[in-house]
Write a protein that binds this DNA or RNA. Sequence first.
RNA 1: GUCGCAGUAGCCCAGUUGGAUAGAGCAACGGUCUUCUAAACCGUAGGUCGAGCGUUCGAGUCGCUCCUGCGACACCA
Length: 563
Amino acid sequence: MDYKQIVADAVSSVVDGKVSTNDIYAKIEKPKTSANGDISFPAFILSKELHKSPQVIAQEIVDNINGESFEKVVAAGPYVNFFLDKGKVSHQVIETVLTEEEHFGDNHQGEDRVVTIDMSSPNIAKPMSMGHLRSTVIGNSIAKILTKNGYKPIKDNHLGDWGTQFGKLITAYLKWGSEEDVKRDPIHYLVQYYIRFHKEDEIHPEYDEEAREWFKKLEDGDPEAVHLWKWFREVSLEAFNQTYKKLGVEFDTYNGESFYNEKLQDVVDTLKKDELLEKSQGASVVDLSDENLNPALILKTDGASLYVTRDIATAIYRDETYHPVMNLYVVGSEQTYYFKQLKAVLKKMGLDSAAGLHHIPFGLITVNGKKLSTRHGNIVLLNEVLDESVKMAKQQIVEKNPDLKDKDRVAEEVGVGAIVFGDLKNSRIDSIDFNLQEQLKFEGETGPYVQYAHARAQSILRKAKSDYINSDNYALTNEDAWEVIKLIQAFPEIVKRANAEFEPSVVAKYSLKLAKAFNKYYAHTKILVEDDELNARLALVKSVSIILKESLRLLGVKAPNEM
RNA sequence: GUCGCAGUAGCCCAGUUGGAUAGAGCAACGGUCUUCUAAACCGUAGGUCGAGCGUUCGAGUCGCUCCUGCGACACCA
């Protein structure tokens, strides 16, 4: 039921067609405070057309309106404020949610079209840091939001499993490595070797030469090089998968850079054939001056390929394999310019994916204002943060709910939920100066706050004796309940907006608002009282619980029934 | 230097396509658990929305100029 449309029609009939219903509809807004009604119409825009002051017009609308759909309609200066019929609307909203359950808010805008999402993309032999968390959880949430909007997302973990760093790693391993150590704690030791390499090559520049040779061997299929590379890749993936399991994230494909390696020559050939490639300072570039961009470097002076080449191969492969309507890259904002170049090159090549390419940037994570760097050992390990948070959650559970069964599972859901929610709560583009203490807070605007509201709702439902599903009247008029109802009613719009903006924070912010409104209602109204409205109250609690759980699901956060 | 992003309460952030007195959370102070989980609720205090012009009936929101911070600017990804 579109109440804005009802208002637009009502206003339109009063102004006698001098302003179109669509124009009126577009101007209708939601007042910031409920004191000003549920929907309001600013009469300013009619002022010119009708040659009257907005105050007079507002009063005329009130005098002539057909107010049967509303509790009341009042003029407040230049505004006309509409108060909806709370009982009628609450009944209708709750009934819809209880019927559709977790599918409330689903839409078919995507028409089953495929969207590829390039996300997470950790580098082999390097630990996942908080930076990878962002790409992973943002991509994961966007995938869920896309699905709710009728799209078919394909989550592709574009692993960093190729490149000159493997020459360095092999060199370092052969110099200082130990097989047992790597088997015991692969990432930890591989990183140690990598860091040591970068320390020592400052004194021993010849190490760089060795590394180059090993990478060359790897490219040429030398058995020892390939064996080590495969091994590093395998143990790294195992370690990554443990983290992904904790986060509850799964991928459709793991086509890393090595996967596209053999397709690079085709890319270069195609570029040559299309006469897009030109020499510049010894390197091969695609000129993009007509797009007002710097040239894209395709091949280095020594003829070696670069990441653009691989990304072009990736785009071609995805076009051919999935025919996606959109091609998303969840990658840090520092690469914005690069993605403009990539898009421009794809466009010149006439590839389908050019139009649908969207870079989904997110802000940089720093520690004490400094950029993270594996090389310099300046990293915040994702696993450690998650473990710490789970530990903290466990502690709180032991304190606050000692009788809870399944403490460890719930601690996992709450602890991980806090970190994931904390990352998704703010606009993607905001940069974050990481602070562990800040991340481990479970009070106020946090994931656990929303989870807690859901758990309390569940708790009430467990204790309820009556069978509210049989109720045919969900009318509520209580003010606190009304705020909750209005938020529930807004959920489908939230789902659409989050999708249009590729912005999980829209859902996170919404879930906080709903949880807050519900907590307020819960604090002031006793639900389990035997009276005429009991069924309606329980139905509302059930609806809230459904929407909170669904909101958290869209963010990739679990909603335990008890905590 | 050029381009991009950002600047809202002590801190961290909301603020839909311009609309009514700029809102939360944290931190501070005070109150609420024999009653549906106090990870909660209620209250107090806290602001020249970076600065200045402009467009408009109306600007945190749009335009221009400037200031500050971060990022990017070909042989890393």
